[in-house]
Structures are given as C-alpha cells and as structure tokens.
Design a protein around this nucleic acid. Structure first.
Lengths: 207, 207
DNA sequence: GAGAAAGCACTACACCTGTAGAGAAAGAAG
DNA sequence: CTTCTTTCTCTACAGGTGTAGTGCTTTCTC
C-alpha cells in the first residue's frame, strides 16, 4: 500500500522515498537542460546524491526515462483527476461552471512551467519511443474524457474529432506559453483556453 | 547572389552546396533520433561524408544548431510565403478561399512529418537557447501576420490574442499529428485546422 | 603560372556517458 | 547474534562527443 490517497490512474503506484527524490531531480534536469542533459550522473548531482545512485535505481537510460514519464504523467493525472471530481459534483445544466473548472486547471498547469516543459519534451520523445507512448496513453485518455464530457454537455451531438482538436490545441497553447514572460504566462493560457473552449460550442455542421 | 529565386525572409540566404547537404543530413538525424542524436559525427555519417566535414563547416554544436534552425525556418517560411502570395491575389470578399489556402498549407506541412518533428524539437530547444529564438522569430512573425490578415478579413475587430491562440493551437495540432498513423495524419490536420479557423469567426465578446 | 584564400579531410585529446560488477551498509528473519 | 536480502556506494571501462589544430586541395585573383 504505497499511498492511501493516491487513486489509481492506470499508471501504477507513484514513486516514493529515494526513487521519488531521484525522479524529482530528473525532472529538474530536463526542465533545465532538455532531454539531452538527462544522464545518470546529472541526476545524481541535481539530487545531491553520490554518483551511481541513479544508475543503481534505474540501470539503463530507458528505464530512467520511462520512470520519469510515469512520474510526470502521475503528477498531471493527479491534477486532472481533481478537476474531474469537482466537475462531477456540478449539475449538467450549469456547464458554464465546468468551463471555469477547465480554465482553472489550465491556469494551474501554466503556473508550473517546469512540468509543462518536461511533459512537452517527453511527449516529443514518445513519438519515437513506443514504450513511452504506452505510459502517456492513460493520462491522455483521462484528459480526452474530461474534455469530451464537457463537450457533450455544452453541445450534444457528435462533431468528428472536436475533442481531439481541442486537446491538441491546448497542448500547443501550453507549450507556446513557455516562451511568454513569466508574469504573462497564466493570462496567456487563460485567454487561449477560453477561446479554445468556444470550439466546443460549435454546432454539428449540418445534422 | 546566392539564389535568384529566394525571397528574403529576414533570415539570411539559404545554405547551398556542401552546407545544404550537411543541414539536410542534420535534419534527418534529428527527425530520426531527436536533438540528442545531433552530433557532428552523426551528421557526417548521415550525409555519407568523411568524419570532420560537419565539424569543419560548423565548428561548435551551437553553430550547427543555429544553422539547422535557420535551414528549417527557411524551408517553412518558403511554404508560408507561397501561401501568402496566393492569398494576396484573392479579393477580400472571397475569404472562404483564404481559408482553403490555409488548410492547403496545413495539409502540405502535415505531409512532411520530418519537417514538423524537427521544427517541434527546435522550438522546444529555443525555449532555453535565446540565440535560437532569434532565428525563429521572423518566421513566426510571418505566420502570425498571415493568419492575422485572414482573421481581419473574416471578422474585423480586435479580439485580444485571437491570432496568437490560433497559431499556438495549430502548432499543437501539427505536433500531435505526429503520433497519428501515417495515412491518417493529413486528414487529422485538415480537420483540426478547419475547426481552429472557426475561431477566427468569433465575434468580439461585447463591443 | 604564382600566390593567396578558402574550404576540406584527418588526427588528437580531454572529457562525458551508459552500463556493469564488486563490495559495504543497513535492515529483516531466524 | 547470525544469516540472508536488499539497497547503496564506488570504481572500471569501452565507447562516444565537442572542439581545436594541422596540413592538403581546390579555387580564385592577378
């Protein structure tokens, strides 16, 4: 029983203790220097642990990479799940409030550029590393589901790919927000998110 | 006079000859293995040239990186500029056709996943490397301008950040398209692009 | 054709990286 | 306390990597 509060995101239990320490350090390393800088020894140094510590817990680089992705996915899934829970308590008629929840989630994420950076970096890496894609799939699924539920309430009816587009677009807004000045990032993301959510109000073209 | 056909994108002249060869190889390397794989010797090997060739033209890694970004920016700017030219010939009333041009541009890009990948990778790198950001700025400016012009024609009036959101979102759709199967990518991007362009039809909220 | 300039191929070298293994330390089980 | 097991630390090593230097070609310029 690794943690009593942690719900199961289809991701396995979160890392604890020494491993958690290492993965947090690894995230810092990536946020700072990109995936290129992610080496066993760099993580050791960032964590302030003796050389070999990372190599000992995660023998190969792929193992480290996979664990890091799980860690990040878990951190994000945690936030998404919280939003889902809050939304579940709001009756369907008041879907304006649902939108506010999504916006709050977006702004929350925008305030964690470190997380966003690492996530973007790992997502790109996942394009070519199937093991990583498997790890991100459940997280992505949750997010799609969350947005999909809201879409259905706001404008019932199937618009092909509507939800996928909004989620992909949201990724783009989050990533682009990284090049905004620190003090404008949250506002930038909030504005973008509101505009994107308007897409959910689109009626099915002709049906 | 490096090239008689190349317009000036504020990016300097495109690479030719040996350098062009090297940069094309570098793009392949990055598309294949990510920025992590971008080393002088990997480019030599990909280009089928003797070791030292890349190191000779681009002494430091940053030099290589900057040149690659210019190269990619040039390739993309080329396409964007072509679309801008075509759009300039269409009268403003027929802005449905403008939209079609943008969609065609998007689909064209989607069919070059190699280019998209490298661009995404470099964009992320640019977040932390100011030299690179300078190179991408003009390209991004052109794109913003292109979309902005269309926005103005479709729905006059200022909607704060409307164009930035669409461009950022488009980036997201393009990047996400990389994890789509090859034969669905173009359709995915086309659908997403059409949906995003609908954002340009939004009226200013209350004005 | 002689000389200069530029580009090119090759080599050298200090440092970094991934991975493995061997022993020390710490804790659990008997 | 003894033994077993797990985790941690440290070291080793076979490559890979960034960068600089050094002559060799080729290509202009006069």
């Amino acid at each position: 029983m690794p943690s009593k509060l942690a719900p199961d995101f289809g991701l396995g239990p979160p890392a604890t203790g020494r491993r958690r320490e290492l993965l947090d350090a690894a995230a810092d390393v990536v946020a700072h220097g990109g995936l290129r800088a992610l080496t066993h020894r760099a993580v050791d140094a960032q964590a302030g642990l003796p050389e070999g510590s990372t190599s000992s817990s995660y023998r190969t680089r792929l193992a480290l990479l996979t664990a890091l992705m799980e860690h990040i996915a878990w951190l994000m899934a945690h936030r998404i799940e919280a939003a889902r829970t809050r939304i579940a308590d709001i009756p369907a008629q008041e879907h304006e409030q649902w939108v506010e929840e999504i916006v709050a989630l977006a702004v929350d994420l925008a305030k964690q550029p470190r997380l966003v950076r690492v996530q973007a970096e790992l997502t790109l890496e996942a394009v070519r590393t199937p093991e990583l894609r498997l790890t991100f799939a459940p997280w992505r699924g949750r997010f799609l589901d969350l947005v999909g539920r809201i879409a259905e309430a706001v404008t019932p009816g199937v618009v092909e790919g509507r939800v996928e587009t909004v989620v992909a677009a949201f990724q783009g807004v989050l990533t682009t927000s990284l090049i905004q000045p620190d003090d404008e990032r949250a506002a930038y993301v909030e504005r973008g998110t509101r505009q994107l959510l308007a897409l959910l109000e689109q009626q099915p073209p002709q049906a």
